[in-house]
Simulated scan of single mutants.
Amino acid sequence: MNTFVELRKIRFYAYHGVAEQERCVGNDYEIYVKVKYPFKDAMETDNLDATLNYAQLYEIICREMKIPSHLLEHVAGRIIRAIQTEFPLSEGGILSISKQKPPISGDIEGASVIVEW
């Protein structure tokens, strides 16, 4: 049985980007995360300690999004390492970070990095 905890459309205003102006002015971001986690015991016991606490998962993402980086890839790496550290039973997942209004000339909704681990 594969079991996952998923958080969708997490929105932040943060200060990431290669250009100094991006790190000063900031931008809107949207995060999606899906973590494979063996919570079969929680299904039987109704015990929070037997699953991945999604409030704690959200706090990990908040903490890492507050640290300015040049690259979204770097932010993604920090988030994944923190998830693996705080939830050592996690078995992989998918993380998407999207910059909603990237500084690109042209009609573009967003730019994303997606990591599957």
Rank of each mutant, 00 (worst) to 15 (best):
G110Y: 01
A42S: 04
G106H: 08
K34P: 08
A14F: 03
G77C: 10
F39R: 12
G106I: 06
R11A: 06
D28Q: 13
E22K: 10
G106W: 09
L7A: 08
V115D: 08
K36L: 12
I94P: 00
L72M: 12
G110W: 00
I60M: 02
K40T: 05
R8F: 12
D41L: 14
L52G: 06
C24T: 13
L48M: 10
N27L: 00
E22R: 05
L48W: 00
S90T: 06
V5Q: 13
R11Q: 11
P102Y: 05
T51H: 00
K66E: 02
K40F: 14
V18L: 12
G17F: 08
I67G: 10
G17C: 03
I80S: 01
Q84I: 04
N27K: 04
E64I: 04
A82E: 07
V75L: 10
N27F: 00
E20K: 09
N47L: 08
E59H: 11
L72N: 05
D46P: 02
V75G: 07
F87M: 11
V33A: 11
H70L: 09
A111W: 04
A76M: 07
Y54H: 09
S90K: 10
I83L: 05
V33P: 05
N27S: 09
N2I: 15
G92K: 03
D107C: 14
S98N: 13
R63A: 12
P38H: 14
T85P: 11
F87E: 11
E20V: 01
E44S: 12
E86S: 06
I104E: 11
H16F: 02
